[in-house]
Amino acid sequence: MPDILVQYEAEIWLSIGETFIMVGASIGAAILLGLPVGTLLFLCRKGEVIENRLVFTVLNLLVNIIRSFPFLLLVVFLIPFTRLIIGTAIGTTAAIVPLSIIAIAHYSRLVEQSLLDVPKGVMEAAISMGASVKEIVFKFLYVETRSGLVLGLTTSIISFISYSTIMGVVGGGGIGDFAIRYGYQQFKTDLMIYMIIIMIILVQLIQFTGTTIARIIDKR
């Protein structure tokens, strides 16, 4: 192993850990809240089973607004809100708030798009069989879109990694922050390059895993 990596080993592991916490929390938020929001966006559309113009318009607008913020500005803008929830706006835990919010907005849009690909006829079959909204979602929609949902989550996770690199501004740490503080600001270019390599490997692994799972569960 190159000397410089040995020298900074402890800090590198720490920042990898911070990245995992931040990205992990984003994934949690995406699944627990992004998936339902995306599903609701789809179901409330015109002509869909619980068509609701108000809910659709509000959710749609919210998702658009959050996604149109440059992420750095969103982080700054959310500082008071973060402080309200976490008690502080600084640190890895606090970084989870803006990350989760962008994660929900990001993934919900991909979920909505996946669901839009379900053939109309499958929805009709579900309704004609007397399925309730919950049954339509779990026994039809998620079954038919499962590979799209996995691919969407894969894309989202890779964006979350990218978003997490910005969290240094609020003391969130992480690999990206480490690369900037040591590699860029202290002119240790080789260290920066190693960090970038770690990121590339991470992204490749995630993409490979996501694509493989999606392919295996896709029977279409």
Partner: peptide, 12 residues
């Protein structure tokens, strides 16, 4: 009910 395009679940 049955349909022209069958409308089966492709993943089942």
């Amino acid at each position: 009910m049955i349909f022209q395009h069958f409308n089966l679940l492709a993943n089942k």
